[in-house]
């Protein structure tokens, strides 16, 4: 579904991504882990078009998306959440989710001005779809609150709803479990499983919270220093000495 091939990127002489290569298969949940500074968020930013890779290629469903601007990539069915989820404070929660339906509307500028029936109908349908999505996330009761009027964890769930409402092919989640308590993390893992089973979405998950990675992911890719150093099933990868070394530094494995 999503193929990253030999992607490299430097920021001011410092090589941030180094020949990274991995794939997310259809309906697969892939975890992307690695120590701080490994390049995980940069990788995500490159995939979603915020940065342009110096070399390498990224394709979605076989079509190249490497040099497209962010909004075009999103239109092709790849959506993401952000580490600091910032919902639009000027929009209500449900309107935020409706934003996730972009760039869709079935009406043009002039129709919007005049408010003709087609516009109204589309808006009603969009609102319904968004409310359904919020309901699915368990956030329906907050629908009319302003986007900034929720707690951080709640905002994150709404953000995921926003990313899902257009039924994307691929969903990128940037550290969704940060700050969540253990039972909430399990809930999140469950939701991720449901996303995969009910919507068939492929998911790429950046995460530090191992509990989520081990529960939710089919496969795990480990990055360190901008390069991919391991790729396989969670329990295998986490026991890989190279991986342990990248997190804990040389010498640890030897000691234990």
């Amino acid at each position: 579904m999503l193929d990253i091939r030999h992607v490299s990127l430097s920021f001011g002489g410092h090589k941030v991504l180094n020949d990274a290569t991995f794939s997310v298969g259809k309906g697969e949940v892939l975890g992307l882990i690695g120590p701080n500074g490994a390049g995980k968020t940069t990788m995500m930013n490159v995939i979603t078009g915020i940065h342009r890779a110096k070399s390498g290629e990224i394709s979605l469903s076989g079509e190249k998306i490497s040099n497209l601007p962010s909004h075009r990539i999103a239109a092709r069915g790849l959506r993401r959440t952000f580490q600091t989820s910032l919902l639009c404070s000027g929009l209500s929660v449900v309107e935020n989710v409706m934003l996730g339906l972009e760039p869709q509307p079935a009406y043009g500028f002039w129709g919007a001005f005049l408010g003709n029936p087609r516009v109204r109908r589309w808006e009603e349908e969009a609102r319904e779809k968004s409310m359904d999505m919020l309901d699915w996330m368990g956030m329906a009761k907050f629908a009319e609150r302003p986007g900034s009027g929720l707690s951080f964890g709640q905002q994150r769930l709404v953000e995921i709803a926003r990313a899902l409402v257009s039924r994307p092919n691929v969903l990128l989640l940037d550290e969704p479990a940060v700050g969540l308590t253990a039972p909430r993390v399990d809930e999140l893992a469950e939701k991720i499983a449901r996303i995969r089973s009910e919507f068939g979405t492929s998911i790429l998950l950046i995460e530090h919270v191992m509990q989520l990675v081990l529960n939710a992911c089919d496969r795990v890719v480990v990055m360190s220093g901008g390069a991919v150093i391991a790729d396989g099933k969670p329990d295998v990868v986490t026991a890989d000495p190279k991986v342990v070394e990248s997190y804990l530094g040389r010498g640890y494995y030897a000691e234990s």
Binding site: S70, H71, F82, G90, L91, A112, E123
Partner: peptide, 25 residues
């Protein structure tokens, strides 16, 4: 009140998130 309005506000509040949701900023 339509999606155009939402786009305006999205660009104002968080242009990067707007782009990630398909809005051509």
């Amino acid at each position: 009140r339509t999606s155009f309005g939402r786009r305006f506000i999205a660009v104002r509040d968080n242009a990067v998130a707007a782009a990630a949701n398909g809005v051509n900023v």
